Simulated assay, not measured.
Amino acid sequence: MDIKQLQDDLAATVRGNDILKCEVLNALDTLSYATPKLKYLELQVLKKDENINQLTNDLQECMKELGVMKGILPQVF
């Protein structure tokens, strides 16, 4: 190999390295944006789960009350 070929190979390697650095920085930027968004979405899921649990408990309570009412109604009529 001659000097010119080595210089060309080195220049190509440096360009490739610069491209990889840019890609890594872009990936880090994307990750830094996605991380808080993920945490927000996780909190939203937790809130939804809590709401579902509360609604389930409310429904069970209503079902119990309805059962009591069904037992009382025949006695009223």
Rank of each mutant, 00 (worst) to 15 (best):
E50Y: 11
A27V: 11
L43T: 00
E50H: 08
D29Y: 03
G71V: 08
G16M: 02
V76A: 15
L31V: 10
G16W: 02
E50S: 06
S32Q: 04
L46W: 07
Q7S: 06
A27G: 11
M69L: 15
D8N: 04
V24D: 01
I19Y: 03
Q44G: 08
N57P: 00
L43I: 00
N26H: 11
D8P: 00
S32M: 02
D2G: 14
M69K: 15
N17A: 01
L66R: 05
I3M: 02
K21E: 01
L43D: 00
E42V: 03
P74W: 15
I3D: 02
L73E: 12
I19S: 07
L10A: 08
L38T: 10
V76Q: 14
V76Y: 15
T35Y: 05
D29C: 01
P36Y: 00
M1E: 10
I52E: 14
T56S: 04
L10F: 05
D8V: 02
A11P: 01
N51P: 00
I19M: 05
Q54H: 05
L55F: 12
Q75I: 14
L28G: 05
N26E: 13
V45D: 11
S32P: 00
A27N: 13
P36W: 00
Q75Y: 12
K39L: 11
I52S: 14
K4S: 12
Y33K: 02
Q44P: 08
L28R: 11
L55A: 12
E42S: 03
P74G: 15
I72Y: 12
L25T: 04
V68M: 13
G71P: 08
D18R: 05
L46A: 04
